[in-house]
């Protein structure tokens, strides 16, 4: 069995710049509206106003998200044509010859990773930059992150190095799909389910 690959995300370093999203877009020439990597801004809290003064009790953080090449990939499960499938290294890919663009995978994925490409009428998604990795390079998003907040590798090694947090708000509970993802949470991150905040840039994700 080949090693299973995954992403690492250091949320403490993310300033929401979306260089990852654009590096991905530039490499894969995805259309507007098709983003294999997206960045959510998440936050909440309140302000206290007393007379002429104000005090914030607020928080905010960013979360970049691509496909997590999950152990229990629901997108693969729901695909009626078997176009969506998982390779030996855990990377989930679409077989263009089989995909009919029904979008069940997009609908089922809690991370909205598979993205419908209206030009081709098929699904498209992150393949962890297979071609780059074969050439000994990092995936485009990892190489581009100005903050060095992203990494990738065998998930066992990532977990050993960075721990095993795989879900924070607003992500789903990791038990749902068992994502190959490790997150170092921002100081303000909220746990899955105990969330008081909301995504503040819904149109962008």
């Amino acid at each position: 069995m080949a090693v299973t690959l995954g992403f690492y995300f250091d949320q403490t370093l993310c300033n929401g710049c979306k260089a990852c999203q654009i590096a991905c877009k530039d490499k894969h020439d995805t259309a507007i509206g098709v983003n294999w990597r997206r960045v959510a801004e998440y936050g909440g809290g309140t302000w206290q106003i007393t007379g002429d003064t104000f005090s914030p009790n607020i928080f905010a953080n960013y979360l970049t998200m691509a496909c997590n090449h999950c152990d229990d990939a629901v997108c693969v499960d729901v695909c009626p044509t078997t176009a969506m499938h998982q390779r030996e290294d855990g990377v989930v890919v679409v077989d263009d010859d089989l995909c009919v663009g029904c979008r069940y995978c997009e609908w089922s994925c809690p991370y909205s990773a598979p993205q419908y490409d209206a030009e081709t009428g098929r699904m498209s998604k992150c393949d962890l930059c297979t071609d780059y990795r074969e050439a000994g390079l990092d995936p485009a998003c990892v190489a581009a992150c100005p903050s060095r907040a992203l990494d990738w590798g065998p998930i066992d090694e990532l977990r050993e190095q960075y721990g095993d947090v795989a879900g924070i708000a607003p992500l789903p509970d990791p038990s749902v799909t068992r994502p190959n993802l490790v997150i170092k949470p921002h100081h303000s991150a909220e746990p899955v389910g105990a969330a008081t905040g909301a995504i503040t840039n819904p149109r962008e994700v």
Binding site: A40, P110, P170, L171
Partner: peptide
Amino acid sequence: PSNGLSRRSFLKWSAAA
């Protein structure tokens, strides 16, 4: 979907969209 999970139960991330 066929895995039996209610979409709403875990779509926290996408719900905001």
